[in-house]
């Protein structure tokens, strides 16, 4: 099956990107063998803007990537335990991996990207997101968290779908090579149906998650997500990886996961760009 043609994001009309997408200053690019072979490692941020994105620390909850103050391996944070013990079913979301800490700079970035509508800022995460996906979830079916129609009209795009478009791009030579070297070699890639972006629907138009309190978020009972009835067969017995921008309490992802599981998904994991704490 043919993959859906990736959505185009262009950061410059003349086809050359030598400026930082965040501060617009010129970026010095070093020509290396890797840059010669693949374009995936393109620098979209200048050095000082890149340092504003703070990678997650070593001490993290093994399940939700929450930065923890106490050390130790294989520690599960309190929230995750609560989620696990909340229903008898256990936690519907098995795992969340985030790229960066949700700090002040990330907040600014998200606000410009999502709320101001600077869609191409998504490119900043392209390389890292692809790497994570290829290393860990190559055999999973990626599904972006949908937004409601009303939000779609307001914003003009769904940020998670932009992230999905990066994962659907064909493999570059370097990526193929590194795939052979890693464990993912033998695993077969899930076939991604052309309508991957509309497999999950968001029906209700609720208050923005970011405007709710922590309690409101965790206690909400109604599930705004529905599996698209046309796609319910594709989900059955699949390992799924959800894509979203921020993980704060994890309730959005968990509600999506519950809906997917009730339609027969085998497991649901998530990749998020930022982990709030």
């Amino acid at each position: 099956m043919k993959y859906k043609k990736p959505m185009n994001l262009e950061a410059s009309l003349d086809g050359r990107i030598d400026h930082c997408l965040w501060c617009s200053k010129k970026v010095e690019t070093r020509t290396s063998w890797q840059s010669f072979i693949s374009n995936a490692s393109h620098q979209y941020l200048c050095f000082s803007c890149k340092s504003l994105l703070q990678p997650l620390p070593k001490n993290c909850c093994v399940r939700c990537s929450r930065p923890l103050s106490i050390g130790g391996e294989h520690v599960e944070c309190l929230d995750c335990r609560r989620w696990r013990e909340k229903d008898n079913m256990g936690d519907t979301l098995e795992h969340n991996l985030s790229l960066y800490v949700y700090n002040e700079s990330a907040k600014e970035l998200i606000s410009r990207w999502k709320y101001r509508g600077d869609a191409i800022l998504a490119l900043i995460f392209r390389t890292e997101l692809r790497r994570l996906y290829l290393q860990k979830y190559w055999d999973h079916l990626p599904i972006p968290i949908p937004i409601s129609d009303k939000r779609m009209l307001e914003r003009g795009f769904n940020q998670s779908e932009l992230l999905l478009s990066f994962l659907l791009e064909p493999l570059s030579l370097v990526e193929k090579l590194s795939m052979i070297l890693t464990r993912m070699k033998g695993k077969k890639r899930e076939e991604i149906p052309p309508a991957a972006s509309s497999m999950l629907l968001r029906l209700m138009d609720e208050k923005k998650q970011s405007k709710k309190t922590r309690y409101e978020r965790m206690m909400a009972t109604e599930n705004p997500f529905r599996v698209n009835t046309k796609c319910s067969s594709t989900i059955k017995a699949k390992n799924i990886v959800l894509l979203d921008d921020i993980y704060t309490t994890g309730s959005t992802l968990r509600r999506a996961a519950t809906e997917l599981k009730s339609h027969g998904a085998r497991s649901v994991r998530a990749i998020t760009l930022f982990r709030g704490s």
């Binding site: 959505m7 185009n8 994001l9 262009e10 509508g117 600077d118 869609a119 003009g156 795009f157 932009l162």
Partner: peptide
């Protein structure tokens, strides 16, 4: 360099926008 192009749901196609005064 100050323009971006991205899919847009209100016009249903790829749409160029100004990043300079966004």
């Amino acid at each position: 360099k100050m323009f971006g192009r991205a899919p847009c749901s209100s016009c249903g196609s790829l749409c160029t926008y100004c990043r300079h005064c966004i």
